[in-house]
Write a protein that binds this DNA or RNA. Structure first.
Lengths: 140, 140
DNA sequence: CGGGATCCATGAAGATACTG
DNA sequence: CAGTATCTTCATGGATCCCG
């Protein structure tokens, strides 16, 4: 019997894989895009800069916590710029960087695939469900 | 004073938006791709079908629960096919459908952007962190 | 107006054990 | 071999309060 159990070795493999996932640019990118609000903020900013309040109105459903968090993450990644105007009521504007616009383009591509193929997905999904849902219809 | 408070109206807006997010093909697609294991399984299957056990070995870090769950979801979406061979030890093969291969192509595009731009992201991230981390270095 | 900090509910991810 | 069922754990997201 080896020192490491199968579970332990699997755990090590998992750790190594997690590392790979964290390293792989594609996985990192997908992670960023999977952020539900990130893509929404990006496309909202695509047609011009916005103030914080405008964003919170145009991206409803996002709490300020999530919005701020998303904005911070996107700013950190160099996808958008944050401009603070220290007036009496502070004014903060957000706008895309060239890198951000580049990502919006990619988002358009993804969008294109979605519109071209998601109908097939929906169909497949409906068929799949149809084969499972009638639990008591076909067996009796 | 209206019947609905600001919080309630925000809640309704959020609900409506959640509905939009669920409806929007792009959001649905991103949701699927964001599934950490989904993209991994797809690219693994890109160069040929695999048995369940093979997948669990080639995609370590995924518990069988996660693997099964991912495979079911992908099958449901019509991205891959599941072929059961009822032998003594059951044999199950998974392989991409044309739709699945199409999605792998999209994944390649995403991959391309990632490799072209993630270095910029890393740089931006490092700069951003550099402006925050030296908490006592630049202020004193 | 913009946002940081905190607390809490929810759901997803993993380990384990069992089945056919 | 190929799962399914269950329990626990943990990260995520949201509500709230408060500050500049």
């Amino acid at each position: 019997m080896p020192t490491r159990t199968a579970a332990q070795r699997r755990h090590e493999a998992a750790a190594a894989y997690q590392e790979y996932v964290r390293t792989c640019p594609t996985q990192r990118l997908l992670g960023r895009l999977s952020d539900k609000w990130a893509s929404l903020v990006l496309v909202t900013l695509a047609d011009g800069g916005r103030r914080y309040g405008e964003l919170s109105r145009e991206v409803p459903g996002a709490s300020q916590k999530m919005l701020t968090q998303t904005l911070r993450a996107l700013e950190r990644d160099g996808l958008l710029e944050r401009a603070v105007t220290p007036a009496v009521p502070v004014r903060v504007d957000y706008r895309l960087t060239p890198l951000g616009r580049s990502l919006v383009d990619l988002l358009s591509t993804i969008n294109g695939w979605a519109y071209r193929h998601m109908a097939e997905v929906e169909t497949a999904r409906a068929e799949y469900d149809a084969r499972r849902e009638p639990v008591g219809a076909g067996v009796g």
